[in-house]
């Protein structure tokens, strides 16, 4: 979130209500239906935001780092390499903590829908909100031009507030790490105290 005095970090009560909203929705439409709603809302959100253009990759990465890009609207992004981005704290952390404090343990459907997404789309979600985050970043990246190129997003790994880590395995992970320009050891170092590691590359 930009360090703008007009902006607050998050709104935990509205986040709690939204999580309950999603739980109620899941009771009606099932896990697959909830997944569709989460993907759709993230795409709609990105589509509502302005397109962006940058003259060079350096300018683009600088805008992401300085919270000037739509990709860093909801999170503080720290570039690790030219292509590898990291998020220090999950934008959902405060809402989740407030939920745990005021309401109790997270409803199982949030994990169930993440498992569905991991199986059907890509294996990088720990809980429901990661579906929103990955889909939003992907849709937002598609709205950005750097020179003559588009921008493609891919998640490398996600670590949830409770320490659970989700990442692809085998050749898929090796390919992502190579394109991101980091090693498996570096990824492990980042995941100790970062919530997300992701890749941006020219499309």
């Amino acid at each position: 979130m930009p360090s703008d005095a007009r902006m607050q970090d998050s709104n935990p009560f509205v986040e709690i209500a939204t999580h309950l909203f999603l739980e109620d929705l899941a009771a009606k439409v099932g896990v697959a239906g909830l997944n569709n709603y989460l993907v759709s809302l993230a795409k709609n959100l990105a589509a509502a935001m302005p397109r962006e253009e940058y003259a060079s990759w350096t300018e683009f990465v600088g805008a992401v780092r300085d919270s000037q890009s739509i990709l860093s609207t909801f999170e503080e992004v720290r570039p690790v390499t030219e292509r590898c981005m990291s998020t220090l704290r999950s934008p959902f952390e405060r809402g989740w903590r407030e939920y745990a404090k005021r309401v109790g343990s997270f409803a199982p459907v949030h994990r169930e829908v993440a498992e569905y997404y991991n199986h059907k789309v890509r294996p990088t979600a720990v809980t429901s909100v990661h579906i929103v985050l990955h889909t939003f970043r992907e849709a937002a990246a598609a709205r950005i031009r750097v020179g003559d190129d588009g921008v493609r997003y891919e998640p490398v790994a996600a670590a949830w507030v409770d320490g659970t880590v989700q990442l692809p395995e085998g050749p898929k992970l090796e390919s992502l790490l190579k394109r991101a320009g980091i090693t498996r050891t570096k990824l492990g170092m980042l995941l100790r105290n970062h919530s997300d590691v992701w890749l941006l590359e020219p499309a």
């Binding site: 709104n11 939204t18 999580h19 809302l41 993230a42 509502a48 959902f92 809402g95 929103v132 985050l133």
Partner: peptide
């Protein structure tokens, strides 16, 4: 972020 996304869900 999920609070901002709520309006998109409602849409």
């Amino acid at each position: 972020m999920i609070d901002v996304a709520l309006a998109s869900l409602i849409e």
